[in-house]
Amino acid sequence: MMYKVAFVVDGVSNPFAGTEGQLLHLIEGLQENGISCELVSLQSSTYLERGDVPCPVRILGCGKTAELATWVALWRVGRDLARGGVRVAQTFMIDASVVAPPMFRLSGIRTLVSRRDLGYWYTPAYRAVLRRTSRVAAGYVCNSEAVARGTREAEGVSADRCHVIYNALPVLSGSSPPVPELLSLQESGAMIVGLVANIRPIKRIEDLVDAVALLSCQGLDVHAAIVGSGDPEPLRDRARATGVGERVHFLGGRSDVAACLQHFHVGALCSESEGFSNTLLEYMRAGLPVVCTDAGGNLEAVRHGETGFLYPVGDVEALSQGLEAILLHREKRLRMGALAREEAVERYSTEVMVSAHMDLYGRILNGK
């Protein structure tokens, strides 16, 4: 059954960001399978205006959800989409999930709501509004069981209306050119722990700095490479204060993450909250064992003792022990990395993710 799907977002400014990247990846996969897609954005951005999105785009230029004009604009675009044959839509991001379900329903479009984190943004006002709009949503697409549980509790959604579809990453072909700074470290014999995340408090990158300090005190030649945007100076100061200023490297935000990963011995993630981390999938796809917190969807992505190690949020000693167990045992590291890559390819492939969405759209259209 061929049909058209509309996606509604607050905006798309960075195609490499987690949610935006997954959305664009889904659109590409659906269109390769003959499904026509259209993107509706409440707000404009330089990226959207460049015309790089792989489907037609409507930019509404809306303001806040509290403004009547935003609701009217969504009603009008829903009416136009329905006239063009759209019968199912999916929202990404917060404001779109508030306005689109009720406004699109007026035109007969059934709307799915995406939830992709543990709801750190929930406020009493949002909870109240979302519990009302959830009544008219066709269902919820959650990227982990942890997110599904949080959505059910916060928004009053029944279990049968929450559908778990994990994130996916495409299989990479060919090799990437080396990253000079990391290559020189690698050639020196240093063991490199990589962490890919923007520098924000929720990511707790300071825990990795402290873990490197602990391991260095034990005589290990361990370095940390941080890939992500944000102000690194507070972390630099912390590294200097703990005696590892020369062992913690900040590479900034980059588009060649895959090239960086080929130099790492292990991937780390210290976040205190995660819905389902794309970073973990990138590590696994690169054949890296993982040491990460047991927050949210991390528990579903990493098999403790098989593809990596999980540790309690903020437990720096447990983090350092997990890193040490992998770094000091080459055979274990290679075995864990191979299992991680195998799981990434089989469980988190583009084909699996796109097929699951197509199946769900079909059931929604058939009233199931």
Rank of each mutant, 00 (worst) to 15 (best):
R152Q: 15
N167Q: 10
A137S: 15
R135T: 03
N167K: 05
E153C: 07
G139S: 02
N143P: 02
S188K: 06
E145V: 14
A148K: 12
V141M: 01
R135Y: 00
S175M: 10
E181C: 00
L182V: 09
A154C: 11
V136W: 08
V171G: 07
R152P: 00
P170W: 11
L183C: 01
N167G: 10
D160H: 13
C162M: 09
V171Y: 06
P180M: 08
Y140V: 05
P178N: 11
V171L: 15
L185V: 09
A138H: 03
N167D: 14
R161A: 07
S175F: 01
E145K: 13
V179Q: 11
G150Q: 12
A148W: 02
P178R: 11
V157D: 05
E181H: 00
V171W: 06
I165K: 05
A159V: 11
V141I: 10
A148L: 06
L185E: 09
V179I: 15
G156T: 04
G139E: 01
S173F: 06
E187S: 12
Y166A: 13
A159N: 05
P170S: 12
V179H: 10
N167I: 06
S175Q: 13
P178K: 10
L172N: 03
V157K: 05
V171D: 14
P180Q: 08
A168Q: 11
P178V: 14
V179N: 11
P177M: 08
P180N: 09
Y166V: 00
S188V: 01
H163P: 01
G150C: 10
L169M: 13
E181F: 00
P177T: 11
G174M: 08
L183D: 12
N143L: 06
A159P: 04
V157Y: 04
V164S: 07
A168V: 07
V147N: 03
P170T: 13
L172Y: 06
L182C: 08
L182M: 15
A137M: 05
S176T: 14
V171N: 08
L185A: 07
S158W: 01
S184Y: 00
G156F: 07
G174Y: 12
N143V: 07
A148P: 09
V171R: 15
L183E: 15
T151W: 03
R135N: 00
L172H: 13
N167H: 08
G139Y: 02
A137R: 03
L172A: 14
P178L: 09
V179C: 11
V157Q: 04
E187T: 11
V141P: 01
G139N: 02
V171E: 15
I165D: 01
L169H: 07
V141Y: 00
V179W: 08
L172W: 10
S158Y: 00
E153G: 02
C162V: 14
S184A: 14
V147A: 11
S173K: 13
H163M: 02
P178T: 13
Y140K: 02
G174E: 11
L172M: 09
A146L: 05
I165R: 01
R149G: 09
A137T: 04
Q186K: 15
R161K: 13
N167L: 08
S176G: 10
E153V: 13
G156C: 09
A148Y: 05
D160V: 01
S176C: 13
E181Y: 00
E187A: 11
L169Q: 12
A138V: 04
G174A: 12
L169S: 10
R152L: 06
P177I: 02
